[in-house]
Design a protein around this nucleic acid. Structure first.
Lengths: 146, 146
DNA sequence: CTCTTATTGACACATAGTCCCATTTCCACA
DNA sequence: TGTGGAAATGGGACTATGTGTCAATAAGAG
């Protein structure tokens, strides 16, 4: 699966919303695709685009997160990263050891929420879940080196 | 149940860790207990303690979070709050409408994690979960006003 | 080609911290 | 009781991640 959706698709979605497809917006998308990692910080984008105003970069990041082109990932140390969104409801598995981020869907938190409503009367509208641990690759790597 | 544990218990835990029980640390605890709400921001503490250095306030907050005296709560808007921890693994139910925060334990995310490990090979070490929605009190309030 | 509106860039300001370093405070031990 | 070392503090600079304002610019519609 591609790291990120085609530019054309994003452009289409901008147009559908009646938003303009401008050079700075395309630059941010390009800069986000440029990194070696599939995740990036606001600062990464800033440093790759010295010619684009800082405010514009943040505005664009915010817009693209709203449009579900990017998603935010909360790292264990409290830092925030951006990432191409796989679109729709999903969560992240963040590897402590290599830092890789995987998505996961099939989130049964819904069941949990229903349970919760029964027990406490609290109705969940949404939730934020990040999982920290060790990915399969780092497991085998550890197994080999020992 | 009390909003927060006795000061003596916290003092004890500081001593157990070989840390000093200093005036600034006690001030932060007092300031945290002073607010009307059971939650507070770093800024709340700062403004209640103009005589204590900012660096000290942040150091102390961090220390008390590590000691599980306070916990951090991630609000829906991305802002962070501090809160007396009920100690041990728990999550938060944050009411959109009145802003109240309830704790909940009996978190069956564990089951989810085991499932995850089977499916993806990812072993979870920990997770962060915040739930947003509407509390029981706000439900009944809404029912009455309609 | 021009009008309108979206968008941008610059800059100031805000929040939530961290880092460094000189000074102070505390505690233990002589 | 005095003192030396370690822990803790306060001040200030610095960082990261934003937001708000406002005048200038650019895009698309007609």
């Amino acid at each position: 699966m591609a790291k990120h959706p085609s530019l054309a698709a994003v452009v289409q979605r901008l147009e559908d919303r009646g938003l303009r497809v401008t050079a700075p917006r395309l630059s941010v998308l390009a800069a986000a695709a440029a990194g070696a990692e599939d995740q990036f910080s606001a600062e990464d984008i800033e440093s790759r685009l010295p010619q684009v105003g800082r405010a514009t970069i943040f505005r664009t990041l915010k817009l693209l997160v709203e449009m579900d082109v990017f998603c935010r990932v909360l790292l264990d140390d409290g830092n925030l990263r951006y990432r191409w969104s796989r679109r729709g409801h999903h969560h992240h598995l963040i590897c402590d050891s290599c830092g890789a981020i995987e998505d996961f869907t099939g989130c049964d938190v819904t069941t949990l929420m229903q349970d919760l409503a029964r027990r406490t009367g609290f109705t969940a509208r949404g939730h934020w879940l990040e999982v920290y641990g060790r990915c399969a690759a780092c497991h085998s790597r550890a197994a080999v080196s020992q």
